[in-house]
């Protein structure tokens, strides 16, 4: 997959693998971020993977955009690759969300059928970074895809488990959301008193299990 390099202001660039979310583009972005981090790029200040892109921030007092982009481009042809160190996490969920019945109804499932389908296979962490410790996990099969809600909830608490667009997401801090609330978890992927403040990385796997 040949990505595009775009300037992002005058101190960062974006390596974009696609404009739509696909499993292939997501895996490519996560793998490229790991490669970039392991590559000791001159002037690099930060590497942050997202759903289908990777942001690389550089120190403009050390290197220009043109030179940095050249160094980044060299990595595209790297055949070495970096072994994704993927870790597995077990996340207990109380499936008690206020939108659970509505979601199950949209999918033509009973509550327990939905929970069983939802938890059937482990999901991959597609991206982090939307909010402190926030996790996007996917992708669910076509049969479990529902659109977002029409209305946005102004705030859901930390630990809320969200569902939309073929994904399950976990909020680790209070956030506004237009996704369906399907449950709650005691799992927190954010602790500002430790470094790093999150423990789950993009590319890790999450196995959800019904609690209680």
């Amino acid at each position: 997959m040949i990505p595009l390099i775009l300037p992002l202001g005058d101190e960062a660039l974006l390596v974009r693998f696609d404009e739509v979310l696909s499993d292939e583009a997501n895996r490519a972005a996560i793998a490229f971020a790991a490669l970039a981090e392991a590559s000791d790029l001159p002037g690099v200040a930060e590497v942050a993977p997202n759903l289908v892109s990777v942001m690389l921030r550089y120190d403009p007092s050390q290197i220009t955009f043109d030179r940095f982009a050249g160094e980044v481009r060299l990595l595209f042809s790297s055949t070495e690759g970096v072994v994704e160190s993927s870790r597995a996490h077990l996340v207990p969920v109380a499936f008690d969300g206020e939108d659970l019945d509505e979601v199950a109804a949209i999918l033509g499932l009973s509550r327990s059928e939905f929970v069983a389908s939802h938890n059937e296979a482990p999901l991959r962490v597609l991206a982090t970074g939307f909010a402190p410790g926030f996790l996007y996990c996917g992708m669910h099969p076509e049969a479990l895809v529902v659109p977002r809600r029409a209305a946005v909830r102004r705030q859901v608490p930390a630990g809320t488990v969200l569902f939309a667009a073929g994904q399950t997401a976990i909020a680790s801090t209070p956030i506004p959301t237009g996704w369906h609330v399907i449950g709650h978890t005691p799992f927190r992927n954010f602790d500002p008193t430790v470094e790093p403040p999150t423990s789950v990385r993009a590319g890790d796997t999450i196995q959800f299990e019904a609690a209680r």
Binding site: R16, N50, S53, M55
Partner: peptide, 11 residues
């Protein structure tokens, strides 16, 4: 609405 990417100050 697009697939989200990283934001920098000034965007």
């Amino acid at each position: 609405s697009l697939v989200s990417d990283a934001v920098v100050p000034g965007d």
